[in-house]
Design a protein around this nucleic acid. Sequence first.
DNA 1: ACCAGGTGCTTCGAACTTGAAGCACGCCAC
DNA 2: GTGGCGTGCTTCAAGTTCGAAGCACCTGGT
Lengths: 165, 165
Amino acid sequence: MADAPPPLDRVQLDAYFALIEVVGLLRHAVEQQLREAGDLSYVQFQLLARLNDAPTGSHRMTDLADGVVYSRSGLTYQAGLLEKAGLVTRAPSAEDERSITVTITDDGRARVAKVLPGHAEVISRMLLEPLSRDDVEALAGLLEPVRDHMRATPPRSAATRRRRR
Amino acid sequence: MADAPPPLDRVQLDAYFALIEVVGLLRHAVEQQLREAGDLSYVQFQLLARLNDAPTGSHRMTDLADGVVYSRSGLTYQAGLLEKAGLVTRAPSAEDERSITVTITDDGRARVAKVLPGHAEVISRMLLEPLSRDDVEALAGLLEPVRDHMRATPPRSAATRRRRR
DNA sequence: ACCAGGTGCTTCGAACTTGAAGCACGCCAC
DNA sequence: GTGGCGTGCTTCAAGTTCGAAGCACCTGGT
C-alpha cells in the first residue's frame, strides 16, 4: 500500500451528499410530472428535448446515448419505444451505413411542447425557488467546469469499448 | 387555465442541465468503482454507509428508503440482498411490531472500509478536482438549502402516504 | 372496547436497464 | 484490393426497479 488516500473533509462530503440528494429528489418529482403530463419517462423526455433543440431535429444513436449518459442497448430500447409511439423516426445514415439517424416527428415536438410548461414548473418550484438569481448563476458557474472536466477526463463511461487515438 | 407558466431562462437551464449531467456522470464512475472494489451497487453502498454512520448502526426500513430516495419495495429487495450477503441483519423492532430494524454487521463495516478509499478517490478526481476550496464551500452552501426545501415540500399529490418525525 | 383510517413492510407483475456477444460497415496500412 | 481492427447498432439473458395490492399493526375518537 502506498499512502492512504486523503479522506474527504466535512465540507467536501456535504457538497457531495447534497448534490446526490438534490438530484435524486428532483428526478423523482420530474419523473412523476412527465409521466402524468405526457406519459414519458425521464430518458424519453431528455431524448426528445435534445432532438427538438437540434438544428436538424436529428442525431445519431451514439451521440444521443453519450449526451444523456445512457447505455447503447438501453438507447436502442427507448428509441424503439419512441418510434412505436410515433414520436421519432429512425433511418440509416446516408454518410455512414452503420449509423442510425434518429429524427423527431411533429408529434414528438408536440409532445415536448405539451409537457414543457409543467416541467418548467417543477424545476422552478423544487430547485429554483430557494435560490436567488445570483445563486443560480453561481451554481451554473460552479457545475459547468465540473461537467467539462468529467467529460474530458474519464475513461469514457459505460462503454465496453473505449480508446481511440 | 391561469397564466402560462414562466419559461426558464438560459442561466436557469444551464444550472439545471449541468446539475443533472454532473450527477449522471459522477454516478456512473462511482458505480463502476464500487462494483470493482467491493461488488456493491450504489444503493447498497449508500445504505451501508448510512448504517455505518448511525450511532446505533441501525435504522428502520422506511427511514433508509427516505434517506436514499428509493422506493420501499426496492429497499425490501436490496435489504434482502445485503442480508443474504451477511452485511446487515434484519429484526423486528421491539417498540413497533410493524417496523423492521436493519443493522450493519462487522462484515458490513469491513466492506464499507474496503471500498471507501477508492470511493473518496473517485469523488476527488471527478468532482472536486476542478473546484477550489471556496468553490466546494459555495456549492455545499447553495445545495443544502435546496435539499432542505425539497425535503420540506410535499410531493403535491402523493400527500396521502407521507409524514414523519 | 371498538373500529376506521394511517403506517410499515412485503409480494407480485410488468417494465426497464445493462454488459456481453454478435453482426455489419468503415478505415487504413500493406 | 484485402485483411484486420475499430466503430455503430441490436439482440439476449439476467438482474433491477417501481407501483399497486395485500397483510399486519398502531392510533385516536367514541
